[in-house]
Amino acid sequence: MHDLLSHTLVMIGGYFAIMNPFANTAIFTAVTAGMDDRSVKKTAFSAVVTALGIVLSFILLGRIIFDFFGITLPALRVAGGIMVFFIGFDMMHGRTSAAHAPASDNSPAEQGQNIGISPLGIPILAGPGTIAVSMSYSATGNVQEIAINALVFSIMCMVTYVFFLLGEKVEQKLGQEGLKVITQLMGLILSVIGIQIGLEGIFGAISLFEQHHAS
């Protein structure tokens, strides 16, 4: 029970850090500036539903994806750990990681796109780092852990939705400096989580190597 609780708390911390509702709320208010309340709510809902659908797919199908591509758990954890570390490293230095940023500076609305789906849903909320973390948490194939993983991410999407709707109030309360400090703190947490995931992958790879040579 204690191990399960610890694992759940790690999931919560990991998702909160990589989705960073505070910083993403600033992005949301910027790209929805000038919209009426109904459009803002619709965009926020579209963003979190897009992220939820994408990440839940990887959470639930992670084991199938592993088997299909012949990916081992240690390989995923090493690669995911490196990716998550560098995303956190960028956040610590006040930069937006390219993995969780729009591919172009052009306004999505001007291109006729639904900005709730892109860039808000993907890659800002459901970027490669989020997907790597979600798959790492479900990689063991334990049904209980997969269920908790899906639940935690669903709750985080709900929290993000509330932050989006309260965007202007959140920005006013925290200010630019407050958002910067929180983002840097989330970056530090994320970097540590990335290193932890990577170390688990390295130890797992060593164990697989030893088992291979012993057989």
Score class of each variant (00 low, 15 high):
E210V: 14
L179N: 13
Q211S: 13
L76W: 08
S138E: 02
I197Y: 12
A103H: 08
L56Q: 04
A79M: 02
K42A: 13
V49M: 13
M158S: 06
T50E: 06
Y15C: 09
I87W: 11
F89V: 00
P21D: 02
G121N: 14
Q176I: 12
T130R: 09
P21V: 09
I71E: 11
H212T: 14
N20C: 09
T72D: 10
T29N: 01
G121P: 14
P74M: 01
A17D: 05
V143I: 15
A79I: 05
F203W: 05
D90E: 09
I148M: 07
S104N: 04
V152M: 04
G14C: 04
F209I: 12
L9E: 02
M186A: 00
A132N: 11
R77H: 13
S136P: 10
F22T: 06
A17E: 09
G14F: 08
T50Q: 01
A101F: 10
T160L: 14
E200T: 04
G13S: 10
A109N: 05
M92W: 02
L190V: 05
S134Y: 09
L61A: 15
I124D: 02
I64L: 15
L76N: 03
I195D: 02
Q172S: 09
K173S: 10
T50L: 04
A33R: 14
I202L: 11
T72V: 10
I124C: 01
I206V: 13
A101L: 10
G112S: 06
K41T: 04
H213I: 12
N149C: 07
C157V: 06
I131F: 05
M135R: 13
Q196V: 00
A26D: 07
A126H: 11
M156K: 02
G53T: 08
I155W: 01
T43C: 06
E177T: 14
H100G: 12
F68K: 14
A103R: 08
G187M: 07
A30F: 01
R63Y: 00
Q211K: 14
E145Q: 12
N24P: 07
Q172Y: 10
N114T: 00
R77S: 05
G80T: 12
F45E: 00
R63P: 00
C157N: 07
I12L: 13
Q184L: 00
H2D: 05
F153P: 11
H213V: 14
S104A: 04
N20Q: 10
T43W: 07
K169V: 08
S136F: 13
M19T: 15
A205M: 15
M186N: 06
I146S: 04
K42E: 10
F85G: 01
T183G: 12
L60V: 15
V10Y: 06
G80N: 11
G187P: 08
A147T: 07
A139N: 06
Y137S: 10
I155G: 01
Y161M: 09
G204I: 10
G81H: 03
I65T: 15
N20I: 10
M186E: 00
G94T: 05
